[in-house]
C-alpha cells in the first residue's frame, strides 16, 4: 500500500482508539476534577465492562445485537455499583486523602483484577459484534487521475458505529454537565467543596455518584471496544495508562482538555503504532507525560493559574 492510503487506514484505526479513550479518560478526569483524587483502579472498571459484556452476550445469546444492547445497559450499571461500593467502603473512610486514596485504589485494582481471574479465568474471549460489514474505501490516484480501491484499505461498519456512539455519548455528557441540575451540582462541588456543603449539596452522595459515573463511562467504553478486542482480566492496564496520559496532557480535571488530548493521543497512538513499534510509542508517551507533569503541571492545553 502507498503512504497515503496507509495513513488513512492508520487514522481510522486511531479514531476508534481515540473514541474509546476519550470516554475512558473523561471518566477518570471527572473523578479527579470533582473529587480531587486519582483513581488507579479506573482501568479495572473498564475491564469489568468488557467481562460483563462477555457474560451478558453469552447468556442472552439469541442475536448478537440483543446481547450487545443488554451489555450496554448492564455493564455500566455493574461497574457503577462496584465503584459506589468502593467509594462508600473505602474512599469515604480515608476522607479522600489524595495519597491514601491512591494506595487504596491500587488495592482495589488488585482485588477487582484478581477476582476477575478467579471468576472469569485467564482466557481472552471474543464478543461478537452486533453487526459487522466490511467497507472498502476508495483512494484517489493522482497519476491515473481516478478513484480506486487499494487492497487492504477498509474498515467495518462496527468501527464507524463505535466512533459515532462515542461522539454521541460525549455530547450527552457535555449536555449533562452544562444543562442539567445534576451537572450543576457536580460542577459546584468541583469548584468549592465547603461552599457546596454550605449550600446544602449532599457532597457525600455527589462523590458516590461521580465515582460510579466515572466507572460507568469506562465500562461503556469497554463494551464498545470488546467486539474489536477481546475480554481479558489484565486488559485494564493499557487504558489506565493511556487515560492517565490523556488526563495529564489535557490538564488535570479539565473535561474539554481531556477530550482534545484523547483525540490527539488516540489518533497519534494509532498512527505512531503503524509506523513504529507499539513499545517505542509507549516509551515516548510515558516519558512525555512525566515531563509534562514536571515542567507544565497544568497540562499542555491548560492555562497557568496565577
Amino acid at each position: 500500500m502507498d503512504f497515503g492510503p496507509y495513513l488513512l487506514l492508520a487514522s481510522l484505526e486511531g479514531a476508534v482508539g481515540a473514541a474509546v479513550l476519550a470516554l475512558t479518560a473523561v471518566g477518570l478526569s471527572l473523578v479527579f476534577g470533582v473529587m480531587r483524587v486519582v483513581n488507579v483502579a479506573h482501568g479495572e472498571f473498564y475491564m469489568i465492562g468488557a467481562v460483563v459484556a462477555w457474560f451478558v452476550a453469552t447468556t442472552v445469546g439469541t442475536h448478537p445485537a440483543l446481547g450487545f444492547v443488554a451489555a450496554l445497559i448492564v455493564a455500566p450499571l455493574v461497574a457503577a455499583i462496584i465503584a459506589i461500593a468502593a467509594d462508600r467502603l473505602v474512599l469515604k473512610r480515608v476522607n479522600y486523602d489524595p495519597e491514601a486514596t491512591i494506595v487504596a485504589t491500587i488495592g482495589i485494582l488488585y482485588i477487582i483484577q484478581q477476582a476477575a481471574l478467579m471468576g472469569y479465568g485467564p482466557e481472552a474471549r471474543p464478543v461478537e459484534p452486533p453487526f459487522n460489514h466490511r467497507i472498502a474505501l476508495p483512494w484517489y490516484d493522482f497519476a491515473a487521475g481516478e478513484w480506486f480501491y487499494p487492497w487492504g484499505l477498509g474498515t467495518t461498519s462496527y468501527k464507524l458505529f463505535v466512533i459515532a456512539v462515542a461522539i454521541v455519548l460525549l455530547l450527552g455528557f457535555w449536555a449533562l454537565m452544562t444543562r442539567t441540575k445534576v451537572g450543576l451540582v457536580m460542577r459546584a462541588t468541583q469548584l468549592d467543596w465547603d461552599m457546596a456543603q454550605a449550600f446544602g449539596i449532599p457532597v457525600d452522595r455527589v462523590y458516590a455518584l461521580v465515582f460510579g459515573f466515572g466507572a460507568a463511562l469506562a465500562a461503556l467504553a469497554a463494551v464498545l471496544i470488546v467486539p474489536i478486542q477481546q475480554a481479558h482480566y489484565l486488559m485494564g492496564g493499557d487504558p489506565l495508562l493511556l487515560s492517565f496520559i490523556v488526563v495529564i496532557i489535557g490538564g488535570l480535571g479539565s473535561v474539554r482538555g481531556t477530550v482534545v488530548a484523547a483525540i490527539l493521543i488516540g489518533m497519534s497512538d494509532g498512527i505512531i503504532s503503524v509506523f513504529f513499534t507499539p513499545t517505542l510509542a509507549k516509551i515516548i508517551a510515558t516519558m512525555v507525560v512525566a515531563l509534562v507533569l514536571v515542567f507544565r503541571p497544568q497540562g499542555l492545553f491548560g492555562t497557568k493559574a496565577a
Binding site: V90, R93, V94, A100, V103, A104, I106, G107, I108, L109, Y110, I111, I112, Q113, Q114, A115, M118
Partner: peptide, 12 residues
Amino acid sequence: LIAGVALVLLTL
C-alpha cells in the same frame, strides 16, 4: 488478591 486486600485494609 492478598496484596490488594492488604493494601485496602492497611489504608483503612
